[in-house]
Design a protein around this nucleic acid. Structure first.
Lengths: 122, 122
DNA sequence: ACTACTGTTATACAATTTATATAACATACA
DNA sequence: TGTATGTTATATAAATTGTATAACAGTAGT
């Protein structure tokens, strides 16, 4: 899978990496058991430092998306903690929907957005 | 309205302020034309620096939630740029829903969350 | 045994962001 | 004339971000 980085973005590089990998899992481009490039390989491919990739991987591990193995490198291994995930999603939605509400985005329009996006995930 | 700040949070103080004010608008605790406390007043009340409040206000202004007036101070004045707002919401939802999808949160559960949250907004 | 590859850890550095601290300025208003 | 407003300028300390080298320990293949 292609991992693209926007160096002009205000988003931290390691956060962009995390997000792209998570979206890759959601879109089934990465499947359970698949290996990600090694920290050095990926850093070299993208043209960034090894530690930046390592930071992304380490956080992805701590958030239960991958496992790190000295043999196989980084392997997709999603750990399901649904309650935790729902709680985190709710916290973010509170502010995202508040912004939308202020800007006159209707509830129905939000539902439609969710449909559009979610239908591209599994 | 009570603006509470969590000093233990990893979220920047000025971001917490922004979010609370936006939620205040969405929940009609702040209405169009209402005045917010002055930067010095609010800083003093919360116990943080004037510039931290000023930064929150300045960004809220640039994002079209308030207007700043030397006479009246900070005044709620939501500028509706719906297309812009929809675009921003979509970008955030892409990653939020991807995370949810990985963690086996169903589309229906997302819709339900949206209902729960949105019903507390106007 | 040797080599090459993993993740892991340590240290150092520069740039940026966050938050604070003082100070001053221009405007508005009673 | 005070007092309040947002605004701007500087300076400082702490934390975050990204890079740079280097080394360590475990694994796999020859």
């Amino acid at each position: 899978m292609l991992l693209e980085i926007d160096f002009e973005s205000e988003e931290a590089l390691y956060v962009q990496l995390q997000n792209q990998i998570i979206i890759g899992i959601a879109t089934s481009q990465y499947k359970q058991g698949d290996s990600l490039p090694s920290v050095r390989q990926l850093a070299d491919t993208i043209g960034i430092n090894m530690h930046t990739v390592n930071k992304a991987y380490t956080i992805l591990k701590s958030e239960g998306y991958i496992k790190l193995d000295r043999r196989k490198g980084a392997v997709i291994a999603v750990d399901i903690d649904k309650l935790q995930a729902m709680s985190e999603m709710k916290d973010i939605l509170k502010i995202v929907l508040a912004k939308g509400s202020c800007k006159m985005i209707t509830k129905e329009e939000v539902h439609q957005l969710v449909e559009e996006i979610y239908n591209e995930y599994r």
